[in-house]
Design a protein around this nucleic acid. Structure first.
Length: 326
RNA sequence: GGGAGAGUUCCCGAGUGGCCAAAGGGGGCAGACUGUAAAUCUGUUGUCGAUGACUUCAGUGGUUCGAAUCCACUCUCUCCCA
């Protein structure tokens, strides 16, 4: 069969604070796997608390990849992620282990697993800066009009107010000399190089999730998020440009406090709220995924039961070959 | 005890006679998403048998064809003088 030469990948996804890390480790132990993180912020070094990186104990419990390997000043992108993650998966497979993708960054997971391709020269800081400046001067509408001329299809799919995406589309068109929408079309027909299923964790009751998020933020503060954020704040102040990592929730909300513009209480409240909103966006994202199974934690009495169900689903999706099935 | 001011929909807050179910923001809910994605953006948000009807702007009563908006009293809160 065609799919036989595809590499198996088990993916654990879902909104923040649902226990993806723990489940990932359980699956690794159970199946002889190694974790490949799929988190746009845990990749950075020096932000272990706020980005909820696996603890040293967790890191020791199973091999982890792509965690804390980048300086906070460095920029990173989906395409970079797909490159490195592909390589990790490959080498794990060569070692005869099961790659277990774990993380909540939907765009990264989808791009990797569905096999989206990114152009070699698809990005240009100078050009982007120019477009950003132009947007400020002429207004977003003007840029959007240009997009309508150059790529009507993309213009239909991108909201005129979404400056970042309008700019990206124009950047792409200029750099790659083809409509932005063309790459989406190519991706749609792309063959995934993997046999995978996304195991998406969640709660039936939204309130439960939100309570967990609030609690986790309190715990982060107890563990020293404040100090971690302050150090990061200092580094950001000295960086020549605002680093990608400065978008991470848990830090940017504390910056106003460091600047003396907000109370600590408000800042912490804002971390909680932003995390909740983020979780909702993640849920929206994964709902739309095609190869996904939803696991509601309220349905399971314990973690073992959950792990077993995951294994069953991995078999169902042919990620695990026959193995334990009767 | 005397004086000044305030009470608006889940929250903040605009509205000072009709165009007000009530600006704007927040939150909630829903959604989009291919190189910053923990980013960025969109829709919606009193109730209903719903191109109309009904209940809302502290309470009660009044003025008016018509009130969140004007008047009276009551309650609550803030501030100032005692």
């Amino acid at each position: 069969m065609m799919c036989e030469d595809k590499l198996p990948v088990a993916a654990v996804v879902g909104p923040t604070a649902t226990g993806k890390t723990e489940l990932g480790i359980r699956l690794c132990k159970r199946l002889g796997g190694e974790i490949v993180s799929c988190d746009s912020m845990q990749i950075y070094r020096g932000l272990p608390i706020g980005t909820a990186q696996p603890t040293p104990e967790e890191l020791a419990a199973a091999p982890h990849h792509l965690i804390g390997f980048l300086d906070v000043e460095q920029t990173f992108s989906v395409s970079d992620y797909v490159d490195v993650a592909k390589r990790e998966i490959q080498s794990i497979a060569v070692r005869g282990k099961l790659p277990v993708l774990v993380g909540g960054t939907g765009l990264y997971a989808r791009s990797l697993l569905r096999g989206f391709s990114f152009e070699e020269n698809g990005r240009d800081e100078a050009l982007r800066a120019r477009l950003v400046q132009e947007a400020e001067q002429v207004g977003t509408e003007a840029l959007f009009k240009r997009l309508e001329q150059l790529d009507p299809q993309a213009a239909r799919e991108i909201h005129p107010n979404n400056v970042k995406r309008v700019i990206r589309a124009l950047e792409y068109i200029e750099l790659c000399g083809e409509p932005f929408s063309r790459q989406a079309e190519r991706s749609k027909s792309a063959q995934s190089p993997y046999r995978y299923v996304m195991l998406c964790l969640g709660f039936r009751d939204r309130e439960t999730l939100y309570r967990r998020i609030d609690l986790r933020v309190d715990r982060m503060m107890e563990q020293g998020l404040f100090e971690e954020a302050r150090r990061f704040y200092e580094r950001c102040r000295h960086a020549e440009q605002i680093p990608t990592a400065a978008q991470a929730i848990g830090y940017k909300e504390l910056f106003p406090y460091f600047k003396g513009e907000s109370s600590l209480e408000d800042a912490v409240e804002s971390i909680k709220r932003e995390s909740r909103n983020y979780a909702k966006r993640q849920i929206t994202w994964f709902k739309r995924e095609e190869q996904v199974e939803f696991l509601y934690l309220d349905d399971f009495s314990d973690r073992n039961q959950l792990t077993e169900e995951c294994i069953r689903l991995l078999q169902k999706w042919n990620v695990l070959k026959g193995g334990g099935s009767p």
